[in-house]
Design a protein around this nucleic acid. Structure first.
Lengths: 117, 117
DNA sequence: CGGTATCCGCGTTGATACTG
DNA sequence: CAGTATCAACGCGGATACCG
């Protein structure tokens, strides 16, 4: 799914953007990181329905894509903090708009359902 | 994947938004529909790598979600046109920003690769 | 023209157990 | 605390064929 060849020229940057942030939990992860640096288990607590495996995987992809920075402290017990990179921060306005739009969308879905009853 | 219960309160509207537009081809479809009404095979020509099955499926989901309107003309041969709904049009600024960001992102990926060589 | 129907591979995800 | 490893299951998506 990831890292296909983006040979096409038009509309594909939209696709690339959606691939970067459209992973199953990435939007929510990024949204929480907009609040500031978070530790691994902090994120887990914020997203209880995400398994540890998936959280790790999504964070690694975001790191690979230059959106999230991972800082490992050489301590015992281990401490790992995640934060947006400068590039990741350029997503903030988009994430905020997505949240606003998503909220409208959820309202609309709820309205559609209640009018069917 | 779709129509989970959105019981949670925070960050989930981002998730909902991404689920609505994050389908494999939805971003590109919507981007093309921003140009104006398109017939089914017009969209196919604009996105040659999308199979007919997938295009149909994604369009049906966008229709169900109130983002795209499907107009069937009672003609022979059949004619079906797709266009953004009023609600779908509220996505336009977001899609444009996603495209701009995606373009930056692709540049960044290309830079990362070339500096590894 | 604009779809459905069916089959199936394979990637993604979850569950569980283990670790430095 | 913050992961990795392994295995099994599920479902997305492609290929192909057929239809009104």
């Amino acid at each position: 799914m990831r890292h296909k060849s983006y040979a096409c020229s038009f509309g594909c940057s939209v696709e690339a953007a959606i691939e970067a942030i459209g992973g199953k939990w990435k939007g929510v992860i990024l949204f929480h990181l907009m609040d500031g640096t978070k530790r691994f288990n902090e994120l887990r607590r914020l997203m209880p329905s995400v398994t540890q495996r998936m959280l790790t995987k999504q964070l690694r992809e975001l790191e690979r894509d230059g959106i999230v920075h991972r800082h490992v402290y050489a301590e015992v017990p281990p401490r790992v903090e995640y934060r947006l990179t400068a590039f990741g921060e350029t997503l903030e306005p988009i994430l905020k708009e997505l949240e606003a739009w998503g909220s409208q969308y959820l309202n609309k879905l709820a309205a559609l359902r209640s009018e069917k009853e």
